[in-house]
Amino acid sequence: MILNASGCLDALTAPRVARSLDAFVAKTITPEPRPGNAQPRLAESDFGLLNSIGLQNPGLDVFYAEVLPLLEELEMPLWISVGGSNAADYARICERIGERDSVDVLELNLSCPNVDPAAAGAAEIVAACRAVSGKPLYAKLSPQLPDIAEVATGVIEAGASGLSLVNSLRGLVLDEWTLEPRLARAVGGYSGAALRPVALAAVFSCYEATKGTVPIVGMGGVQSGKHALDLIAAGASAVALGSVLFGDLEAPERVRSELEEEARARGFERPSEARGAAHQPFAA
């Protein structure tokens, strides 16, 4: 299963690309509109891209009334990414969006590096959302958590159905001559190839901690089928594409076919059979 990482594709400007995915993950919605951060918002670094968008979005009401109906016209599985500054914010969005049959999954963005973090703990937010919605809830976690596996088991106990691993890492790029930060907000989210081993480690340890019983969307620097297969072997049940989509509109189809080939080359009939291959078998 190949998805996009939230915030890395707009299905309304590029429906053909969205349709080449198994599900479309919308950009994070917050209760109120957010204008996003000041320019500049992007800077390339060695091995990755730094962004500081700041969860720009039209807010829940406009999204619900104007954007969601257009996304529904795509007639494909929709995942909606949910943000906020406290548990009540997240719950409010989950309750409202969760009532739509068209929405398959609510992904809780518990880890945006470009906004001030929610004061509430991840498990508290998940529990508040679980109380108001029966939809599958995926918790998107930061790779900077000191013990991501502990947080992962906490959110699962609180009612999360799955995990999205990982969001970007905090990074800084300086101008080569002035030595000032390239981004207006100085620090931004670092994604791309450099995130790959970080994402693999997060997926690996969360798969182990949840004993392979929880669906995991692996993401971070996936550019090829082999990168996707690595995440699946570490424990991912689905893979999301992020910054690769910016320069390669054919990436979903390419990664999917490369993934099948790479899995077959290693004796797996289907990529899903490789899930957890990086782990020793669990003791019975």
């Binding site: 890395c8 996003g36 918002r41 992007l42």
Partner: peptide
Amino acid sequence: EAPMACGFGACYGCVVE
């Protein structure tokens, strides 16, 4: 003009007021 990663509305890098 603003820095742009995609060119087709995906990244929100080039937003101006």
